[in-house]
Amino acid sequence: MGMLVVLEGLDGSGKRTLAAALRQELADRGLRATSLAFPRYGQSQPADIAAEALRGQHGDLLASINGMAVLWALDRYGARPLLEQLRQEHDVVLLDRYVASNAAYSAARGEAGAEHATMEWVRELEHDRLALPEPALYILVDVEAAVAEQRARHREATEPGRGRDAYERDSTLQDRTATIYRQLAEQQWTSPWVVFRGSAGDGAIEALAGRIEDIRAAGDGRR
């Protein structure tokens, strides 16, 4: 059974670029690697409804922290058969966002001081009730919120259909989310975490691939 490795971070943090580089590095080491991104826009009704809410549709749905969180969770729940298939066919499945993104953004949207309760609610919803598998490793792609925003603005200007949504336009939310991501990594929330602040060419990607190989060799692929 292949292991799940999750890349987390703000929109514009560089997750997609890192996933491509890491997938190639793992393939060069003889591992069958593939990738999947959440939310699954265009493939999942819960994800599409949530995306529409982020763009002003569906009345007051966006105002509901829990309502939006449930939609993101149901998107992943609908992908359980696909995740199972990918894990059967590959050694490593790289996920661009997973349960921790729901914990980080939901906690950041809530009242100060209630972060832990929100994160625990997300964990119980997605891992306990919906039985989504825990990843073998979370990789936090950690950049300053201002850098992520600049990249998101560039993507909006250069890539058709990649306009920023309500979350991405809220700089205060992005700052709080970045802080909570770092807390999740520090707490080693649900799974082992590593923080990535490197770049291609400095050996950081090779080090990540080595960490993945070590976890796989130890047999801790999680269920």
Rank of each mutant, 00 (worst) to 15 (best):
L140I: 01
H154V: 12
E186Q: 15
D170R: 11
V195K: 06
A157W: 08
Y138W: 14
G161I: 11
A146V: 05
P160T: 10
G163T: 06
Y138V: 09
I139G: 03
R153E: 09
I139Y: 05
R162T: 08
Y167F: 14
Q188E: 15
Q174F: 05
S191G: 15
V143D: 06
R164K: 08
R151Q: 12
E156L: 07
T177V: 08
E144V: 07
T190H: 10
E149A: 12
E156K: 07
D165R: 12
E159V: 14
Q188C: 08
A166W: 10
A145C: 01
L184V: 08
Q150Y: 02
R162N: 14
D142K: 08
A166N: 10
V143G: 00
Q187K: 14
Q187D: 11
A166G: 06
Q174V: 06
W193P: 00
Q150V: 04
E159I: 08
D170G: 13
D175T: 06
S171D: 07
Y181P: 00
V194S: 08
R155L: 09
S171Y: 09
G163C: 01
I139K: 07
W193A: 01
T158D: 10
A145V: 01
A146L: 02
I139W: 07
R176I: 00
P135E: 00
T158N: 12
R182Q: 14
L173N: 15
D170H: 13
A166F: 10
A185H: 12
Q183M: 04
A157F: 03
D142Q: 07
P192Q: 13
R182K: 03
R164Q: 09
